[in-house]
Design a protein around this nucleic acid. Sequence first.
DNA 1: CGAGCGCTTGACCGGCGTCAACACCCGTGG
DNA 2: CCACGGGTGTTGACGCCGGTCAAGCGCTCG
Lengths: 234, 234
Amino acid sequence: MITAYPTTASSVSSRCQTCTIREIVLFADLTSSDFDSIHGKIEYKVFSPGEMIFDRGSAGDFLYTIHSGLAKLVRRADDGRDRIVRVLRQSDLLGIEALATKQYANDAIALTPLQMCKIPLRVIQELNRLSPRLHARLMEKWQQALQDAEDWIADLNFGTAKKRVANLLLRMRHPDQPHVSTVFSRADMGAMLDLKFETVSREISAFVQNGAIVQIDNMGRVFEIKDEAQLRRA
Amino acid sequence: MITAYPTTASSVSSRCQTCTIREIVLFADLTSSDFDSIHGKIEYKVFSPGEMIFDRGSAGDFLYTIHSGLAKLVRRADDGRDRIVRVLRQSDLLGIEALATKQYANDAIALTPLQMCKIPLRVIQELNRLSPRLHARLMEKWQQALQDAEDWIADLNFGTAKKRVANLLLRMRHPDQPHVSTVFSRADMGAMLDLKFETVSREISAFVQNGAIVQIDNMGRVFEIKDEAQLRRA
DNA sequence: CGAGCGCTTGACCGGCGTCAACACCCGTGG
DNA sequence: CCACGGGTGTTGACGCCGGTCAAGCGCTCG
């Protein structure tokens, strides 16, 4: 991905045609001439962990596609506690809701170093006319977002702390390395699972002691899954 | 609504034009001639509480719009416990996900007596060509569904039992009677909030004792909200 | 009037939150 | 190179919230 994308923002949209993940994002079906019409309107942006991408309620004029890294959607409760509503990863879209409501529904914050394309909503609307199949793509993305949100409710926010942490570990496995799982700070995990970070830490430690997982890095973020069945049983 | 819809299924689509809630569902922008082309393809259906509308994983060939009543989307966990993922009400769509994935993502079950229109997906796809603005409508609906799911996570599945029950009571207020709230069986409430039904019962009783709410019916389903501030504080 | 279902209430216990101390990793500057 | 300090993770002690088990009530419908 990095090879396909320069870290400068110059002449970015022309790069879309050579983007290695183009097929899995929005513009898979566009022709070269389609691209000419949006030339120069798409920005390539980089965020560092903790950086805010946009905030809830502000005017949503752009839509973002993730090239690499992770972002979290957050709501701040009245009492100040943060609730992570969803985590987005490669080829996910940030801010689709603005297509319908003109404003963002959540705070969006980078969770890891993050590389994204920033696309004006107007471009999407233009392209609707050019590419009838873009609609289908958008629908798929929308469906995926809904699916993720429902999975979030059903898997990560149901049952005991042990179950929740186990499900998160399973969900955060690396796609092409199913026995390696990378997680977040204990505080973020707590905000995802509705648990205190001490509880998360305890459950992880318990899994390590039981031999279900083994810590790989030296910061407690990367684990090897030794006994997947135990995690599933939880 | 009942006056606009017969309980028989005969000649239903012609009725769409006179439907009193047409403006808030999908076909607001269609012309009379558009309707002619879909004549006879839309079924009007009635479900009673507890009846299953469709089940997770089955082929999704139809989309439903709710005219009156409530439906729940349910996932059954491995250990047999049910989790209510979302509740749908008037003018919501059931089964939109089938537009993208061809199958239903959850079980759908009637929560109250339920009146719906059952629309073949093919009709929706046809209408896409006829009415460019139907897309916008669909997008709004999809956005609404996503918004609901995220609200569900942020409001109803976060914090103490007291907070959750309070938020549910607030959410279930009657649109035009903001101090009246109608809820479900304690078991269903538990499946929504990830609480045991005894806990839900206790919290409700506590609110009654504190004078925050007053029971109106004799089955513990309808309450008058006396002290909204207390519910918000929770 | 009796059966059955849903709601309530109580007693008890376990899981998770709370508060606190400490270990570890890292960057910084001497 | 080491000393220091802050951020993050771990671990312990304790208390409370909510789960569990159980009994009893009230409504509805046969």
